[in-house]
């Protein structure tokens, strides 16, 4: 009986995952048509297929430029960033056995933010900015590791505190960079970059994001059953033969790489890694084998929708960080309220 229920549940979860993937694909196609210039989804498909299948009505240079040159890299970047952040968030929540943990907790975002702002201040372009953000994001993780090693490498609370300390340190450095930046040239660029945006998305940036993100995401997905065991507690995990400390640092490194890559190409985008795993948990339950892919698919859809709002509401784009916070905070409050109610009912 239990086996039958388990198979039925897994079938249901698989169906939910396929449905999520279909929804993501539909949102992506719709997103390619949404913006200052509206293009119907059918026409979007014809434009995308035009190099292979010539449509009855020829594709105009304007249509090609808007859909393929401007929007396509942006849509791909939004999906990758959203999926990566949600996946990182879900992994960290399982790792720390705490649903209030997000990618920002390890200090990586602050480190990457400092790297990016420093690059802008020094006038480093494109690759230099991405490289600096990435390098400082990972150096933040190294600092957290060193800090935790000195105190207690196996204590989760120490890890969180180390993350807070490192975040505070890099936050101060970001403020210092902003203070010294020229107010008419560099400062607006820094502020806009920190608020997060996919406005500068292009093929190069998509590749720079996909390069580290895809293998790291694959790594997290491959380890998802181990996260299940880790979330049971350190003692149980050790009893089942897992190298807890090593696995924890591997998971932290993978999530740090994802977050660094995202911050490097599009600035700080908060709340996605915190809110989306909660939504996914409501849809598919707490099993990380399903929760991780569900979070990734839901994260891609969520950030894509937010970006659609960002670029459609006005000619002057609303930074993503503002929108994700405005949407994420009330959503998170509602989720917490519902969780509390469920606990009280139970």
């Amino acid at each position: 009986m239990t086996v039958v229920l388990s198979v039925a549940a897994s079938r249901r979860e698989t169906r939910v995952l396929w449905a999520m993937a279909a929804v993501l694909a539909a949102i992506a196609i719709a997103s390619l048509g949404v913006g200052r210039i509206d293009i119907p989804p059918g026409r979007v498909m014809r434009i995308l297929l035009s190099p292979w299948l010539a449509p009855a009505e020829p594709v105009t240079p304007l249509e090609w430029s808007v859909v393929v040159v401007v929007r396509l890299p942006r849509v791909v970047m939004a999906v990758l960033a959203g999926a990566g952040l949600a996946l990182a968030g879900a992994s960290l929540q399982g790792l720390f056995r705490n649903p209030l943990v997000g990618p920002q907790v390890v200090g990586v975002s602050s480190g990457a933010a400092f790297g990016g702002t420093l690059a802008i201040l020094l006038g480093w372009q494109h690759l230099g900015l991405v490289g600096a953000a990435f390098a400082f994001g990972l150096s933040a993780l190294v600092l957290v590791w060193l800090f935790a090693s000195v105190v207690s490498r196996s204590n989760i609370l120490v890890l969180v505190l180390a993350g807070v300390v490192v975040s505070g340190f890099f936050g101060a450095l970001v403020s210092l960079v902003q203070f010294t930046a020229d107010s008419h040239d560099k400062l607006p660029v820094i502020v806009f970059w920190l608020l997060g945006s996919f406005a500068t998305a292009d093929v190069d940036k998509v590749m720079l994001l996909a390069g580290p993100l895809l293998p790291c995401a694959a790594g997290l997905l491959a380890l998802r059953w181990r996260i299940n065991i880790l979330s049971m507690g350190d003692e149980d995990a050790r009893a089942l033969g897992l190298p807890v400390a090593g696995l924890r640092w591997l998971l932290l490194a993978l999530t740090a790489m994802i977050v660094s890559a995202q911050v490097a190409v599009s600035g700080i985008v908060g709340w996605v890694g915190l809110v989306v795993p909660h939504l996914a948990r409501m849809l598919v339950g707490p099993d990380h084998r399903v929760l991780l892919p569900a979070s990734a698919l839901l994260g891609g859809s969520f950030l894509l929708l937010v970006d659609d709002v960002a670029r459609s509401m006005s000619a002057s784009e609303i930074p993503l960080g503002i929108l994700t916070a405005l949407i994420g905070t009330p959503m998170f409050a509602v989720l917490l309220w519902r969780t509390r109610e469920r606990r009280m009912d139970g």
Binding site: I37, V66, V70, L122, A199, R311, A315, S316, E317
Partner: peptide
């Protein structure tokens, strides 16, 4: 700041860019 999409949709008669030595690094 306006989006590239806005610029393409606006289709200006003249595109005017400003620059300086400070842009060499970027």
């Amino acid at each position: 700041t306006v989006s590239l999409e806005y610029l393409i949709g606006a289709d200006p008669d003249v595109y005017l860019a400003t620059g300086g030595t400070h842009m060499a690094g970027r």
